[in-house]
Computed example of a mutant assay.
Amino acid sequence: MVMNRAKPINCSIFKQVYQSFPITSYSPHQKHLTNKIFNLWSRYTKLEKCLTPLPEVSDIKEIAGGPLTKWPQRLNAIPPRISSGSLTGIAENTFVENTEVWKKRVEYYKKIDYQLAETGRYRNFLDMNAYLGGFAAALFDDPLWVMNAVPVKADQINTLGVIYERGLIGTYQNWCEAMSTYPRTYDFIHADSIFSLYKDRCEMEDILLEMDRILRPEGSVIIRDDVDVLLKIKKNIDAMQWEGRIVDHEKGPHEREKILFAVKQYWTTSPLTPKQDQ
């Protein structure tokens, strides 16, 4: 049986048919607007009725955006967005170095938190500041999955496309607001510099309460940040009845950045005395 080959969609023809949907232009001004939409909270951004075309190609056989390496090699291969120079400030060597850094960091985490090294102990992970997805990539050999969140912040680079090109899953999130979670709770939350990132946007307590809401009882948290920030966080999590401890950076005690390991406890009452039981 011979099957007809599907014809590629020509955006210009598509525009002629559907005149009510203009094609998004990529002028410098509109590129600025596109970045602005990412930086603003989506619920407060006015939607535009238009079609966003794929990146232009010189030949019909060329893949828009660049070809992707097959899985699982694509996890550590240079993503097309980086190799093409689409992301300002992120070069190929930056990606490679970031991947290696997170391999070492996860190895260090497992030395400190023996439960993290225990196969099957945690299943659902949330990385609150995923950047290039290095934390999730370093956990590839473990039987778990990671939701990679890219914080919505004015000075952040939009790296969600890189995360998807690595074969990972991710989402945007403004950590000054509640997260629409799936699954209902997470077993493990990783927060790299989140509190420093949002220190001028919202209160530390609000972010911690949101973390407490989406973390299951006896779930664990790793928070990386400046030592002064972590000391304030430690006071708050003590009040939330989490058990936590601050340890040195993987490079040694002279680094200002420290790491806080914490476990959310069950909230239970003290056993009743015989008189109270009566």
Results as ranks from 00 to 15, higher is better:
134 G>Y: 09
134 G>H: 03
136 A>H: 08
136 A>G: 08
136 A>T: 00
136 A>P: 04
136 A>Y: 03
137 A>L: 03
138 A>Y: 08
139 L>I: 04
140 F>L: 13
141 D>K: 14
141 D>W: 10
142 D>R: 11
142 D>C: 06
143 P>N: 01
143 P>L: 11
143 P>T: 07
144 L>W: 15
144 L>Y: 01
145 W>N: 13
146 V>Q: 03
146 V>M: 14
146 V>G: 01
147 M>S: 11
147 M>W: 14
147 M>D: 07
148 N>K: 13
148 N>E: 03
148 N>Q: 12
149 A>W: 02
149 A>D: 03
151 P>G: 08
151 P>S: 02
152 V>K: 14
152 V>Q: 13
152 V>W: 01
153 K>Y: 14
153 K>G: 07
155 D>I: 08
156 Q>D: 03
157 I>F: 14
157 I>L: 15
158 N>Y: 05
158 N>L: 04
159 T>I: 06
159 T>V: 05
159 T>F: 05
159 T>M: 12
160 L>F: 07
160 L>D: 12
161 G>A: 04
161 G>M: 08
163 I>E: 02
163 I>D: 04
164 Y>E: 15
164 Y>L: 13
165 E>M: 06
166 R>N: 10
167 G>R: 08
167 G>P: 02
168 L>P: 04
168 L>Q: 06
169 I>L: 12
170 G>E: 09
170 G>Y: 10
170 G>Q: 07
172 Y>C: 02
173 Q>R: 05
173 Q>F: 04
174 N>L: 10
175 W>F: 13
176 C>T: 01
177 E>Y: 14
178 A>C: 03
178 A>W: 09
180 S>V: 13
180 S>C: 15
181 T>F: 03
181 T>Q: 02
182 Y>S: 06
182 Y>W: 10
183 P>G: 02
184 R>H: 09
184 R>K: 14
184 R>S: 12
186 Y>N: 08
187 D>R: 03
189 I>Y: 00
189 I>S: 06
190 H>V: 13
190 H>T: 04
190 H>P: 02
191 A>E: 03
191 A>D: 00
191 A>I: 01
191 A>K: 06
191 A>Y: 07
191 A>F: 06
192 D>C: 01
193 S>Q: 10
194 I>P: 03
194 I>W: 00
196 S>E: 08
196 S>P: 00
196 S>V: 02
197 L>P: 00
198 Y>Q: 05
198 Y>R: 02
198 Y>T: 06
199 K>A: 05
199 K>F: 01
200 D>F: 09
200 D>G: 07
202 C>A: 05
202 C>N: 12
202 C>Q: 06
203 E>N: 14
203 E>G: 00
204 M>W: 01
205 E>C: 08
205 E>Y: 12
205 E>D: 15
206 D>L: 15
206 D>G: 00
207 I>Q: 14
207 I>Y: 09
207 I>N: 02
208 L>I: 11
